[in-house]
Amino acid sequence: MSDTGPPVVLVVEDEPDVAETYRRWLRSTYDVRVAADGPTAMAELDASVDVVLLDRMMPEMAGEEVLREIRDREMTCRVAMVTAVDPDFDVVEMGFDAYVTKPPERDELMETIERLLDRAEVDDDLQQYYSLVARRSTLEAEKTEAELNDSPEYANLVDRIERQREEVDEELGDMSTDTDFVGAVREIMNDEGEQTE
């Protein structure tokens, strides 16, 4: 994710009018890039891209193939499929992080992008939450209940854990949605083995 400037959204859409509409909608909030087909999208894609809006039906390279290549390259951007047909379960199985039915409304598109950007924060915030809980667990393993009750450090930690958990749950959103649930798990797996306590 880019540290400076607005988030980068890559629109992959073969119909120029549709791509232009998205660009107009999004350009005041995001840095928008447009690719007219799969191969161009793959060439455009680098670590600065935060969210990809991927049209499912394109000549040359279908949305699924582009997604597979993104996952194979182990890029951490989040990918929303834009589809005219009701996607049913295959969206989750194919590994899309969200989907939008075509033609999307402006608000719907913005909301989806915001949700995916939020999700990028989930892993970091869960990691912080974990560190706080791990510290509390160490204190609880080492001290008696009376000592804990007298410890301002412990009381402070308990407060911070509560606040951090609220923040995490806010970002996670409604976990009854399949794509949000699987997407959140995929986020934490991106970092598996890389972080130490």
Binding site: D123, L126, Q127, Y129, Y130, V133, A134, V168, D169, L172, D174, M175, S176, F181, A184, V185, I188, M189, D191, E192, G193, Q195, E197
Partner: peptide, 21 residues
């Protein structure tokens, strides 16, 4: 199989899933 922090994060997500459904 996994780091404790990953298992913990997964359990947080999975228990939220069970709660929300």
């Amino acid at each position: 199989y996994l780091d404790l922090n990953t298992v913990f994060k997964f359990l947080h997500i999975y228990t939220s899933r069970i709660e929300d459904t």
